[in-house]
Design a protein around this nucleic acid. Sequence first.
DNA 1: GTCTATAAACGGATAGAC
DNA 2: GTCTATCCGTTTATAGAC
Lengths: 202, 202
Amino acid sequence: MTTDPARPPARRGPYAKSRRRRESIVAAAHEVFAARGYRGGSLQDVADKVGMSQTSLLHYFPAKSDLLLAVLHLRDSITADGSPRDLSETLVESVMRQASFNETVPGVIELYTVLCAESLTDNHPGLDYFTERYEALRSSYLRAFAALADEGRLRPGVDPERAAATLVALWDGIQTQWLMAPELVDMAGCLRDYLELVVLPE
Amino acid sequence: MTTDPARPPARRGPYAKSRRRRESIVAAAHEVFAARGYRGGSLQDVADKVGMSQTSLLHYFPAKSDLLLAVLHLRDSITADGSPRDLSETLVESVMRQASFNETVPGVIELYTVLCAESLTDNHPGLDYFTERYEALRSSYLRAFAALADEGRLRPGVDPERAAATLVALWDGIQTQWLMAPELVDMAGCLRDYLELVVLPE
DNA sequence: GTCTATAAACGGATAGAC
DNA sequence: GTCTATCCGTTTATAGAC
């Protein structure tokens, strides 16, 4: 493969090495923000972990808030939000699979729990992300519960909208308790119990 | 009432004025920590709000962490934790009353949600408080559900221990959603729905 | 792209005058 | 009890050499 000598080289995207560098920075920031939060974690902490200077880090992410957003969007691609793997997977199966998976990935639950609440504080760069995420989650589960209701498989009296908010709330809340006392709290069990209470067997 | 002139005046406790000063500091810190978190809120913020210098503030609370603990324990005395007002009040009534009350007190829900998650980060002075609080809440609701089970008023198949953790989790989680979108989330409705699903009518 | 140097601001906490 | 002055560490971010 040769380069046309008559014109200057076409603008190239970032080199592979640079992309890997960015990824390692985001991974380090994921660890730091999960352990100390956004305000409590410093760029120096991230730089130390990835083995570069704090100023070099700012070459990749011009501001600390850019790094936060990169971490949050990386999290999305890791967890894929519990959306059904295929059309045959039921709501219960998909929730249980996602919950069990998250438990195995170090730091994801910490990151989510810590940053979500922190985003409620003044001028936090993560607020929009979490607000939109909640709306998306609620509407996704609303659709799932509404579909079950159509099949007559939602327990009578259960409101699909409130059930969606409840499922999301329960999931978040049980993660917090699990982080404080992993041996005392059965995350998957609580989620399954609730879903089996609300969704009637086929 | 006279003072014995033969001995020096007995050591007196803090003056009433000093006690009120402490209370106003704690109230200001409550606002600051609710709005910015513990790490994000500074002693200067609190001092400004109460109208004194940052160093004078440290005369009352030798360290920032002491101020945090004072705020957390003040919160307990405000909310009284949803424990039954009297023996005739049912679990459902007590939860609903507490949830509705919290909604009316500015900042309590913010404070709790923000500090609870933040306490999961490294070396946070609030972790013990929240860990103990969760254990107390779970065991309190466990007793309530167990008592209902004895009366045959717990839905068959419901495990009292998991139901206790679930109630606490749901409550926390729905507060987070409510803080992000108060008009979209019905806190009291979700709590009532869950309890009516689990507790059979008398 | 990576670094050193440094700016510019802010943090909690201490010493000591009044 | 309240203050000013100050210590000393840390923060994000910029400038510019290499």
